[in-house]
Design a protein around this nucleic acid. Structure first.
Lengths: 213, 213
DNA sequence: CAAAAAACCTACCAAGTAGTATGTGAGCCT
DNA sequence: AGGCTCACATACTACTTGGTAGGTTTTTTG
């Protein structure tokens, strides 16, 4: 009965559904997907399994939705600054900056995104799960392509110089995604602190370490 | 009975112990630590649990040893090039290059290292496991410090410019470690191919993306 | 306000897994 | 040759965990 409530559409509508997502994200970040039991997530919610299975048909779907929400926020952060009259290098910098800030401010969600789909490549059994998986991989690639496109523009308008755009973008995104490993917000941290950190990171990416000479 | 065969000493002596480590590393890379059963590792070895438990007292210890071996190879790759008469920037470049090559050539081991200790920070129950964990974290920090030290030298001798050495090093190492996510060797890949990729990565890190001007 | 639907909770099961206890064959030492 | 140890294999247990079936409470709707 009930049947089609899931499908590919995000299920973050109305209710406290987002609470489930964040609770799951925190558990997944701290212990990893497999080490996290549904009861763990429920306990963090102050509820029981029943609540979770009311909204998600399986643990896998829950993971997928966390991943989706994380990617959604990534796009939300980056797309507004990718177009404009500035040289491509400036826009790319802004995109990196936004992405870094998004990583810090949605740490749990993004940690799950980073932890990633790789682990599920082998375990996904049902055809629907495989389709969902393919969908998520596509979204990931699309996100990376956003950066690649602007980087190419930069090569053409002369504001960016690199021997290989694809590698350079992977290097930059790796540097930023690595935040999910080492960054943890300090107790009394402000938005300013995060912006300073983001600027340092973007500075490193754009200027490199070699002293000009 | 038997008792102290483990302890902190590496257990990669004589026999085919290294086979167990690499089989475990491959499983952990593909499925993650928790999703990998001891039977999975044994199956990949063409053996049974008995063989593994003959050398390792627990799954956790097996993981620890994989991690240790991965870090050992990292040090092995990097330390030979960190000292010398060249300016610090050149030496740092060489270290990055070596680390990138090590990532590619020990992919499974290094993927486990990256997957990391974070996940175990919470789950480690026994006192001995906690001590081992602390040890591994120390080793990680020491590795990062290697780069920081040379980077500081570079700031002093003027060959390196950055607003924050610590952040810059984390950015660079993140970029390289990210290889474990996206890099997969192509069928007929040669050592030259890997060196070309490593050089591109190091180039991106040292020169940045901004065109000089 | 009654009835239906949504939003949960409780109790349970089947499957999988870390770890153990015991067995066994091959080599080695004396 | 006989004993001993190493290097595994086999068979089992105790426990965890994803998922389900059915009940109960709260909210919405007619």
């Amino acid at each position: 009965m009930s049947s089609e409530k899931s499908q590919l559409s995000p299920r973050i509508d109305k209710t406290g559904n987002i609470d489930i997502l964040t609770a799951a994200a925190e558990c997944f970040m701290e212990q990893g997907y497999h080490a996290t039991s549904i009861d763990d997530v429920a306990r963090r919610l102050g509820a029981t399994k029943g609540r979770i299975y009311h909204y998600y048909r399986s643990k896998t779907e829950l993971f997928f939705d966390v991943h989706r929400e994380g990617m959604r926020r990534n796009f939300e952060a980056v797309t507004p600054v990718m177009k404009g009259p500035e040289p491509a290098a400036a826009r790319l910098s802004a995109m990196f900056r936004q992405h870094a800030l998004s990583m810090m401010e949605n740490l749990a969600l993004e940690a799950v995104v980073v932890q990633g789909v790789e682990m599920h490549r082998f375990g996904a059994t049902t055809p629907e799960q495989r389709r969902t998986l393919a969908e998520l991989m596509t979204v990931r690639n699309d996100f990376e392509s956003l950066f690649k496109r602007v980087a190419y523009e930069g090569v053409e308008d002369g504001s960016i110089r690199t021997s290989d755009v694809s590698v350079a973008v992977k290097v930059a995104l790796g540097a930023i995604n690595w935040l999910s490993i080492w960054y943890r917000p300090r107790p009394a941290e402000t938005r300013d602190d995060r912006e300073i950190l983001a600027d340092k990171i973007v500075g490193s990416i754009m200027q490199g370490l070699n002293a000009p000479g």
